[in-house]
């Protein structure tokens, strides 16, 4: 299998604080990985750093995507390579509708003009899958959306933009049971129908129920402290992070 995402000894900081210490992680194409960890462990930082957020400075290590060193690349270039980040708190962007934004983004990503008819049809289908009211297509991106609607809109973008690797940063947080189900269905579609790879940052095992998980990583205090299969999700679900925290303390 060819190399897909490979992170080697990644160290990153924001301002003066080091937040990631020599993190190494590898995802093969088509795999679904879960990233667990207590609050403040650096999970989002890792997601943001893979996406190329200028907020974090990489001070050591490398990120490779499909064999290329992308450590210094801007977020737009990474997006064009097929990396996607679903934000924990999606940003409200007044002045552009969901539909126009998706079309603009798609044209940027593919470098091709998108036929309006095909686009609208696809958008309608995906919105139906996510049980989103069609009126959201003509509303300004995330503006005035509830927490749940914003998360659905992120998954809508995921399915429409069809990246190769999606990082989902607590996409399930703040959602009610039904919304988790719907969102999870969308992720399943990305995983199974679109053959996408996933790095899922979550607190909640619920969203993983319908998904085939290949590998689990536990991040504590900016370090990967444990790795395992899907059973690790269950273990953390039952026992929490206590034993990993203990390990840290000495």
């Amino acid at each position: 299998m060819s190399e897909f995402l490979k992170i080697i000894d990644l160290t990153a900081r924001a301002e003066e604080k080091e937040l990631l210490h020599q993190v190494s992680l590898e995802i093969q194409e088509g795999e679904t990985h879960v990233l667990l960890g207590p609050n403040g462990a650096g999970k989002s930082t890792l997601g943001y750093t893979i996406m190329g957020s200028p907020e974090y400075e990489v001070t050591g290590g490398k990120i490779y995507f499909q064999g290329d060193d992308i450590t210094e690349e801007g977020a737009d270039k990474r997006a064009k390579r097929g990396i996607f980040l679903s934000f924990q708190n999606p940003i409200e962007i007044p002045g552009i509708t969901v539909s126009n934004f998706l079309r603009t983004a798609l044209e940027q990503l593919t470098g091709e003009r998108i036929k309006l008819f095909d686009f609208k049809k696809r958008l309608k289908n995906v919105m139906d899958t996510l049980q989103m009211d069609q009126s959201y297509a003509d509303r300004d991106l995330n503006v005035g959306f509830s927490g749940g609607e914003k998360k659905k809109a992120e998954i809508l973008q995921l399915l429409m933009l069809n990246p190769r690797l999606a990082i989902l940063d607590e996409t399930d947080s703040g959602l009610d049971v039904d919304a988790v189900k719907t969102v999870s269905k969308g992720i399943e579609e990305f995983q199974k129908k679109q053959g996408g790879s996933l790095l899922i940052i979550t607190h909640n095992a619920k969203i993983l129920e319908a998904l085939k998980v290949d590998k689990t990583h536990v991040l504590v205090d900016g370090r990967i402290v444990a790795e395992g299969g899907p059973e690790l999700v269950e273990d953390v679900g039952q026992n929490g992070f206590e034993k990993y925290l203990d390990k840290e303390s000495y």
Binding site: G52, P94, G95, L161
Partner: peptide, 22 residues
């Protein structure tokens, strides 16, 4: 960052935000 993570260049992202402001 949000907009660039969707493939827009930094200047396109800024123009879009300013356009929204207007």
């Amino acid at each position: 960052f949000y907009l660039t993570s969707r493939g827009l260049s930094e200047e396109e992202a800024k123009a879009l935000i300013v356009g929204g402001f207007a």
